[in-house]
Design a protein around this nucleic acid. Structure first.
Length: 104
DNA sequence: CGTATGACTAGCT
DNA sequence: CAGCTAGCCATAC
């Protein structure tokens, strides 16, 4: 039974995103070691095994757009969750320079 | 096992 | 700013 290393890493990284901050697919992908696998990250998020342990709503697109969400009403629910956590929004996009997670 | 898909990104118009 | 194209990856069926 091969553990999906890439996906597993993605979940691990996403679960480390602090409340009130967001990370981009590109950022997660880079931390996972494959800067070109942004699409694969989206797949992992879509097939997320535990939405309560994996704050997939804290993952947004590189331009600050919400991208998508497979829970509730979709991006609407995602936006609400982020707003509740204190993420700064500008219209339908996240203010990346302000709310982007400073991974270390 | 091979094909198709998707919550992407960067570049250009 | 918005829209379209091409490139790339892992997963799903």
């Amino acid at each position: 039974m091969s553990i999906k290393i890439f996906t597993h890493k993605v979940y691990s990284l996403v679960s480390k995103i602090p409340r009130g901050k967001v990370a981009t697919y590109g950022q997660i992908t880079r931390l996972a070691g494959n800067p070109k696998a942004a699409r694969a990250v989206g797949m992992a998020m879509k097939h997320n095994p535990d939405t309560r342990c994996i704050p997939c709503h804290r993952v947004v697109a590189s331009d600050g757009s919400l991208g998508g969400y497979s829970v509730g009403k979709g991006i609407e629910t995602k936006k609400e969750l982020l707003l509740k956590e204190g993420v700064v929004f500008s219209k339908n996009k996240v203010q990346m320079p302000i709310s982007q997670w400073n991974a270390r």
